[in-house]
Simulated assay, not measured.
Amino acid sequence: MIDAKKNIDSILFIEENIDKVCNLNLRRKVEELRREFYINCCVVLDKSHPKNKKKICEDKLIEAIYYERDKNCAHRDDDYKKYKDS
């Protein structure tokens, strides 16, 4: 959970300090942080509900987190379509 929070904090820091870090490859860095965020969230969900993935995925937000991780972050699937709110 802490690692996922660090990912969000880093993205927010970049956003708030864009003028100071504009010479860096921000698109790549933010994408990397975003990928790590989804992976870290799924680690927390997997450990807190080890045998109930199907049940917890009834929640649309949790389903979207797993979808992003499975289709776009852990590896890129050809059939990936970005969720509207992700």
Rank of each mutant, 00 (worst) to 15 (best):
N52E: 09
C42L: 06
F37M: 04
L45Y: 04
H49M: 10
L45Q: 01
N52Y: 01
K54I: 14
N52W: 00
D59T: 07
C41A: 08
Y38C: 06
K54S: 14
K51V: 10
R35K: 13
K51G: 02
F37V: 01
E36M: 13
Y38G: 02
I39L: 13
E36V: 03
R35N: 14
D59I: 07
L45H: 01
R35P: 05
D59G: 05
K47V: 00
K47M: 05
P50L: 03
R35Y: 09
E31D: 15
C42V: 08
E32Y: 10
N40A: 07
C42E: 11
P50D: 04
I56R: 11
K29L: 15
D59F: 07
I56W: 07
F37L: 11
K53N: 03
D46W: 02
E31W: 11
K51C: 06
L45C: 01
K47R: 08
N40R: 04
R35I: 12
K47N: 07
K54V: 12
K54M: 11
V44W: 10
V43K: 11
V43C: 10
V43N: 12
L33R: 04
D59C: 09
R34Y: 15
R35D: 14
D59Y: 07
L45V: 02
I39M: 11
K53Q: 12
C42P: 00
F37I: 02
N40T: 02
R34N: 15
V44L: 11
D46K: 11
D46P: 02
V30C: 08
N40V: 00
R35C: 11
R34S: 15
E58N: 03
N52G: 06
S48N: 01
F37N: 03
K53P: 04
F37S: 01
V43W: 10
V30G: 05
C57K: 15
E36Q: 12
S48C: 08
D46V: 05
K55R: 09
N40G: 01
E31T: 14
E36C: 10
E31M: 14
H49C: 08
E32G: 04
V30L: 07
V30T: 12
H49G: 02
I56G: 08
K55G: 00
V44H: 10
Y38L: 07
K29I: 15
E58W: 00
F37P: 00
N40L: 00
R34T: 15
